[in-house]
């Protein structure tokens, strides 16, 4: 697809989501909110994982901090929710700078494991903080209807996607891509690799924290286990990779597709749903390891041979 066509298509999808409350059921609206928040998370993971090439398992920390920012502001200090969102973002960005500095010196698997540790550490710390309600969690005041949350999460996804679109065409983004492709060569060519990596980490902290804040405000309950959930981080990665990491629309597309698939499976065949979900992922990785975005680009050129080539090229 041509870029202009893609943007028209994206605008249609956004318009479609915006009108869901006027015709869809309450269940559909709630599914929409969930899918949009997951898409935002996959999209922000895309910045550090897809563009910079650092497979972060610490994004659920940003998400959790965003949630706790809102929860603490609302419950402990009776502040407006907007202040809570800002507090969450500030916490997440601080975290990204402080821990990004040491952690982003690691690469590949080492980076993944270190960030995985961060999630566990945060769960332990927050479980022992009075201000965060210890391991019992916090119950937030009930907020206005689902329509508002659908609009909020839709707006957030649009902003996040615009940020990614800017990254893909900017000097900053080319620096990130250069780091992903070869960090030593990037430094030799004048990319301030340390600064760029931390900025990318902080940028995905901003969007993940906002998503976490909106989600916590929406479900009105937050505890350490659900705030710093590693499996949520795994889902971000699966969705981004399924859609196509390092592309503008892929991660959001992957999130919608997988959210829909898992929702349908869960409603039809409850107990076996996760097994079938697993099968979908495995099949996707075998036949289209570079994601939906790559499939859309190359299927027309190669036809069914596209799948054959992928199996050949990525055979273990």
């Amino acid at each position: 697809m041509k870029p202009a066509l893609k943007f028209i298509f994206a605008a249609l999808v956004v318009g479609g989501f915006a009108t869901v409350p006027s015709w869809g059921s309450a269940v559909l609206v709630q599914f929409g909110i969930n899918a949009l928040i997951l898409a935002t998370l996959a999209q922000s993971w895309n910045i550090i994982g897809g563009y910079t090439g650092y497979p972060s398992f610490g994004n659920s920390v940003f998400y959790g901090l965003g949630g706790y920012g809102v929860a603490i502001a609302l419950v402990q200090y009776q502040l407006p929710s907007a202040v809570g969102l800002i507090l969450g973002v500030v916490l997440a960005v601080l975290f990204a700078f402080l821990l990004g500095l040491p952690v982003l010196r690691l690469r590949g698997h080492y980076f993944a494991i270190a960030t995985l540790g961060l999630t566990e550490v945060m769960t332990a710390i927050v479980s022992n903080l009075d201000i965060a309600g210890r391991n019992v969690g916090l119950i937030l005041p009930l907020a206005k209807g689902d329509t508002l949350f659908l609009e909020l999460s839709l707006a957030l996804l649009v902003v996040t996607t615009l940020a990614v679109a800017w990254i893909s065409r900017s000097r900053f983004g080319f620096g990130l891509i250069a780091i992903r492709e070869n960090e030593v060569a990037a430094a030799v060519m004048g990319v301030n690799t340390t600064l760029y990596k931390i900025l990318a980490f902080a940028l995905c902290a901003v969007f993940s924290a906002l998503a976490g804040g909106i989600h916590a405000y929406w479900i009105t309950y937050l505890d350490p286990g659900s705030a710093f959930d590693v499996s949520l981080n795994v889902r971000m990665i699966i969705m981004a990779v399924f859609g196509g990491p390092g592309t503008i629309f892929g991660p959001a597309l992957g999130a919608f597709a997988l959210a829909a698939i898992s929702e349908i499976l869960a409603s039809k065949i409850t107990s076996l749903a996760s097994i079938f979900f697993g099968v979908v992922i495995v099949v996707a990785i075998i036949f289209m390891p570079r994601g939906v975005a790559d499939l859309a680009q190359n299927f027309r050129r190669f036809g069914w041979r596209y799948f054959q080539e992928n199996i050949k090229a990525h055979r273990v």
Binding site: R171, F174, I177, A178, E181, N182, A186, M189, G190, V191
Partner: peptide
């Protein structure tokens, strides 16, 4: 930069 086009490889040099 293996995944980039030849053009963009060189463009990184021009950008930085």
């Amino acid at each position: 930069f293996p995944g980039l086009t030849v053009l963009d490889n060189v463009a990184v040099g021009a950008l930085f």
